[in-house]
């Protein structure tokens, strides 16, 4: 845990100075962390939809254009893009589609960032300030929205991601309107 604490301090230095240069500390980001009991997946045995908890801190990050812009900046600064690319994935899963292994509400994404996930997602809970984790969660949720995909794939001169709509907080899950995104992988045609 000492090593994790050092990393947090180093990050504070970056934030204060705006310096993006590497620290050469060999401190490890631990990938194991005990759960604090928050439900991490919408899939809850024996429970009906709507029964899972929500976090009041999440509310301010919906319909929040500043949060997603800040989240996009942090997504690069904290090397999220190293694994998830510009949403297309690589070492980590892609974030452009509408599949959410651990849930798509902002508090669920925040929880994933805090706790890490067993197949290699690091736990960032005690290493990144919480407000930044919420901004990152908002941007991650935004990455499958049509406007954000367009911005991230160069389809538009604007690089501004879309704010997360309030509907995305619904317990039943929410998808962008049909035909606007996520259709690409539904049908793949063979070579012509």
């Amino acid at each position: 845990m000492c090593s994790g604490y050092r990393i947090e301090l180093l990050m504070s230095v970056w934030l204060l100075t705006g310096c993006h240069h590497a620290s050469h500390d060999q401190a490890a980001v631990t990938t194991e962390r005990t759960s604090n009991g928050v439900i991490a997946s919408a899939l809850v045995p024996g429970m009906i939809h709507g029964a899972s908890s929500s976090d009041p801190r999440a509310a301010q990050y919906y319909e929040n254009p500043q949060a997603v812009v800040e989240g996009k900046r942090l997504f690069s600064q904290y090397n999220c893009s190293g694994c998830h690319s510009n949403g297309g994935g690589g070492m980590g899963p892609d974030l452009m589609d509408n599949q959410w292994i651990y849930g798509d509400r902002l508090e669920q994404i925040h929880q994933t960032l805090v706790e890490g996930r067993p197949n290699g997602m690091p736990a960032w809970g005690d290493k990144i300030p919480d407000a930044q984790l919420w901004a990152l969660a908002a941007y991650v949720r935004s990455m499958s929205l049509p406007q954000t995909i367009a911005a991230n794939t160069g389809d538009t001169p604007s690089q501004t991601p879309a704010p997360v709509p309030r509907e995305a907080a619904q317990d039943t899950g929410w998808s962008p309107p049909p035909g606007t995104t996520n259709d690409y992988t539904d049908v793949i045609k063979g070579p012509q």
């Binding site: 690319s85 510009n86 297309g88 994935g89 690589g90 892609d94 452009m96 995909i149 794939t153 690409y184």
Partner: peptide, 11 residues
């Protein structure tokens, strides 16, 4: 991999 081909910079 868990990759979306719409992002050319992926992988």
């Amino acid at each position: 991999g868990p990759v979306d081909p719409r992002d050319g910079s992926a992988a």
